[in-house]
Nucleic acid binder design. Structure first.
Length: 115
DNA sequence: TGACTGACGCCGG
DNA sequence: CCCGGCGCCAGTC
């Protein structure tokens, strides 16, 4: 199965998250939606489960800061390498949240040809 | 069709 | 903070 336009947008946004910073699935969905492509947190999760290997997927966590059980172990390793501490199953999202310029996000999607 | 299933999120208790 | 319940939506059976 090839990624849909929405999936491409999700992957591009996740690829833009700077090392050491985080976004929740819902945040990614909002950024994509603001670019005119319908998207929900659930769809972001499904996209990453299929194509996440090509982007820094560990920088996306649940809105509560909890890391999905399914990828908890590998995620901890990557996060630690970026200086992000975990208490075992969650991170401090408020402290590490990324606040991108919506215009810039959109610009990247256009440059990459997705839009 | 319809039921079931997620790397989710918000609200109440 | 944990848990249950409900909404969400594309994919699978």
């Amino acid at each position: 199965m090839n990624p849909s336009v929405r999936d491409e947008c999700v992957l591009e946004v996740v690829a833009q998250i700077p090392a050491g910073n985080l976004l929740s699935y819902g945040d990614v969905a909002s950024l994509v939606a603001d670019c005119g492509v319908a998207c929900t947190a659930r769809q972001v999760a499904r996209c990453l489960s299929h194509f996440g290997s090509r982007v820094p997927w560990w920088r996306v966590v649940q809105s509560s800061g909890t890391i999905a059980e399914q990828v908890l172990v590998p995620a901890r390793g990557h996060l630690a390498a970026e200086g992000i501490v975990t208490d075992g199953r969650r991170v401090d999202l408020d402290e590490r949240r990324w606040f991108p310029d919506p215009e810039e996000v959109r610009a990247v999607l256009v440059r990459s040809g997705v839009l």
